[in-house]
Every structure is written in C-alpha cells, then in structure tokens.
Design a protein around this nucleic acid. Structure first.
Lengths: 147, 147
DNA sequence: TTTGCTGCAAATAGTTTGCAGAGAC
DNA sequence: GTCTCTGCAAACTATTTGCAGCAAA
C-alpha cells in the first residue's frame, strides 16, 4: 500500500485537530491501521505491537480503535463470531471477499453498488446511509491445498 | 407471508427425516421461524413463546435455532453487536435493508448479485460460496418521526 | 424402553469499564 | 500543572454447555 504513509499522517492530524494526545501507543496503533495489511484483527494488532511494547494492553488497542472509528478513519468489519477486522487504509465502505479457510480478506474492484443503492432507496423508501457487502468463499491457495 | 405454512411443513419434515423428535417447544419455535415476521431475534422469539409456554428456556431457543440452521432451513443474520436476527421464511442469502433507528429489516427485490458474484470470482480467483449484502439507513416511518 | 430433549445454572470469550498512576502538552 | 491516556483487573453480555430429569417414538 503506497498511500499508507499518507493515511498515517491524515489520521494523526485528525487526532490532533480533535484535541487528542499523541502517545507512543497511539502512534503504533495508527501506523498499523494506516497500513491495514490483510485487514488485521484486534488480537493481531496487539500481537504485532507486543514485540516492541511488551506492556501494551489489549484495552488500549480497543480504546484507540473506538476513537479512530469515531473519527471515521477506520472501517470496522465486524463478524458475528467476534472476529472483527479493520481497514484504516480504505476507511469507506467497500466490498470484501473473505476466505472461510485461511480468513484472508481481499478487496475486489466493483462499482455497480451505487446504482443498486439508489434502486433500493427508491423501492423501500429508506434513506440509505451505509452498506456492507461480503463474499465468502475459498481462495486459490486454500483450493490448492488438498488436505 | 402466504407460504409460511408451507415453510413450517418443510422444516418439520426435514427434522423428522433427520431423526429429530418433534417436541412442543420445537413446534412453536419452528412455527415462528417459518413466518419470520420482521426477522425476529432470539430474544424476540423467546418473549413471544413465553406468553404460552412460561417455562420455555432461552437455551432451548438457541439449541433449536442451531439445529435448524444446520439443516439449512433458517438464515442467520448475525450482527457484530450480538443482535442476531433470523429468517426461516427465505432461508437462502438475500439482500437486506435495515433501519438503524427502529431495527426494522426489509427484503428488497434485487437480482443483479449473481452477475456480481461471477465478476468477483473471476477477478479474485476465489470460489465464491456465499454472500451477504446489507444496506443500512432510516425507514420512512423513522424519517417522519422528528423527535 | 431408549434416546434425545429441556430447564436450570454455570461457563465462555470478546469487549468494555473503573480506578489509580503515568505522561503529553 | 492539567487533563487525558494507559495498564490492570473486574464487569458485562450474548451464547454455549454440563447435568439430571423428562418425554417422544
């Protein structure tokens, strides 16, 4: 992700603008979220950080994600089984393709959703504010691994 | 839902075919799922049943939903906040429109998803097995209620 | 009669929260 | 120096599970 640094700056600036302090913990969390390589989970983020900050608390990761989410700078992909994943690199809603075996998450290129949104708004009389589209399947890697 | 009775029969038959006993508790749960008016939650189902069966346990509702889900006869709409909703009337994946105020869930008519599914499969090399599409917004009722 | 089902209560697990001390500015 | 943030541990809550008795077939 080439724009990872840009995303980092944007999020940090937004934190400053809203009067939040920039702590070392916050910095690492934002750095990982700005990249969001593979759409990390909270647990994953926590483990990554623990290498360098052994005392980092899970609660701090949660609290910072809530904060950054409230600023609209991270997209939360919550799953009913509690395995939430995050995308701070592309924080606006977009479709995802999820491997049910290795849990890899990929962003496909699709744009016919806007049209669909209008169609739905017309038909149901809802004011559509948000959406979520996930495809579940098996990635080519996991297909190859006949275990 | 005119086909609610048909759905009821189908689910009961499938339970029998798979060697499951038909208990009074199971019967009421299936009856409510077959209708799935407004896409009920577990809690909602439990409350409905308690009127007639005051000793009905929440655990029984959960266990039966798990069972019927394993037979593919109810669609689970799990939400990250734990407010799962169920649809035993149309148990195959279909789009939903959800009011973020009153939590009403509506089924819009949309069928351009199959095309999209193929497009995604081609682009990502995934074998797509399932999908989930939710639109979030505010329904006309809640729009009118300026509180 | 056999086997699965139910109700109750306790366990589970991801997330949130209260509190006291630490640290950004 | 002030006020937010952090780490720890306890709390929370929807769901699951162990167990003993009950009931469908």
């Amino acid at each position: 992700m080439a724009n990872s640094n840009k995303r980092f700056e944007i999020i940090i600036q937004k934190l400053r603008d809203n009067g939040h302090k920039i702590t070392p913990q916050r910095l690492v969390i934002v750095k990982i979220l700005a990249k969001s390589e593979g759409h990390p989970s909270v647990e994953n983020i926590h483990v990554q950080i623990k290498k360098d900050f052994p005392t980092m608390s899970l609660a701090t990761v949660y609290r910072n994600i809530v904060l950054i989410k409230s600023l609209g700078e991270v997209l939360e992909l919550g799953f009913p089984d509690g395995s939430n994943r995050y995308d701070g690199n592309k924080p606006t809603p977009h479709p995802h393709v999820i491997c049910i075996k290795c849990k890899k998450i990929v962003d496909p290129d699709l744009d016919s959703l806007d049209e669909m949104k209008k169609e739905v708004a017309l038909e149901t009389n809802f004011k559509i504010l948000n959406h979520r589209l996930d495809f579940f399947g098996i990635c080519s890697n996991c297909m190859a691994e006949k275990v």
